[in-house]
Computed example of a mutant assay.
Amino acid sequence: MTQEMVIYLATESVWTLLKISMPLLLISLIVGLVISILQATTQIQEQTLSFVPKIISVFIGLVIFGPWMLQQIEGFTRLIFELMVEVASK
C-alpha cells in the first residue's frame, strides 16, 4: 500500500463521515436554535424542553435520510474492498 493510497483512503473516510453526519447535525442545530429562541422569548428555562424535540427530530431525520446514509456507507465499504483487492494483487 503506497502513501498515496493511505492518504486517499483517509480523505475518503473523513468526507464520508462528514456527508453521513451532516444532515442529522443540521437538523439538531436548527431544532435547537428554534427551541432556544422560543425559550428566550417565553423565558422558560427548562432543559428537557430542548432535549426531547431534538431527539424526536433526529429520529425523524434518520427515517428520512437513513437509506441515503446507508448507500454512502455501502459505497465507502465497496471502495475499501476494491483497495484491498488492489493491494493484494500487487
Rank of each mutant, 00 (worst) to 15 (best):
A88W: 13
F59K: 04
P23I: 07
V34Q: 03
Q45F: 11
M84Y: 13
F65A: 12
T77N: 10
F81C: 07
I20V: 15
I7V: 14
P67E: 10
F51K: 03
Y8E: 15
G32Q: 03
Q3A: 11
R78L: 11
G75E: 14
Q39A: 01
R78E: 12
E12R: 13
M22R: 08
V14S: 06
Y8W: 11
F76N: 04
L29E: 05
F81N: 11
M69L: 09
Q43V: 05
M5G: 09
P23L: 05
S89E: 14
Q39K: 02
L25T: 10
E46G: 02
E12G: 06
S13A: 15
Q43G: 00
V58S: 06
I30H: 01
L9P: 02
T2Y: 11
I64V: 15
K19N: 08
E46F: 07
M84E: 10
K54F: 02
P53R: 06
I60R: 03
V58A: 10
S57D: 04
L49Q: 05
S57P: 03
F65R: 06
A10W: 10
I20E: 03
Q3I: 10
T41I: 15
S13K: 00
L17S: 14
T16H: 06
L38W: 08
Q45L: 09
S50R: 14
L38Y: 04
F51T: 13
L83Y: 09
I80V: 15
I64A: 00
V31R: 07
L24I: 14
V14Q: 08
M22Y: 09
T42S: 14
T48Y: 10
V34P: 02
I56S: 07
A10G: 12
T2Q: 12
G61K: 00
E86R: 15
I56R: 05
L9F: 14
M22D: 01
W15E: 11
T41A: 07
I55L: 15
L49F: 07
T41E: 00
W15N: 12
K54Y: 02
S89G: 07
L9M: 15
K19L: 12
G66Q: 08
G61C: 09
G32E: 01
E74K: 11
F65D: 09
V52A: 10
P23A: 09
M69N: 06
E86T: 14
A10K: 06
E4Y: 08
I30R: 00
K54T: 08
S57H: 01
L33S: 10
Q47R: 09
T77P: 00
S13Q: 11
K19Y: 09
V63I: 15
L17H: 03
M22C: 05
R78P: 00
Q71P: 02
T2I: 08
L18V: 14
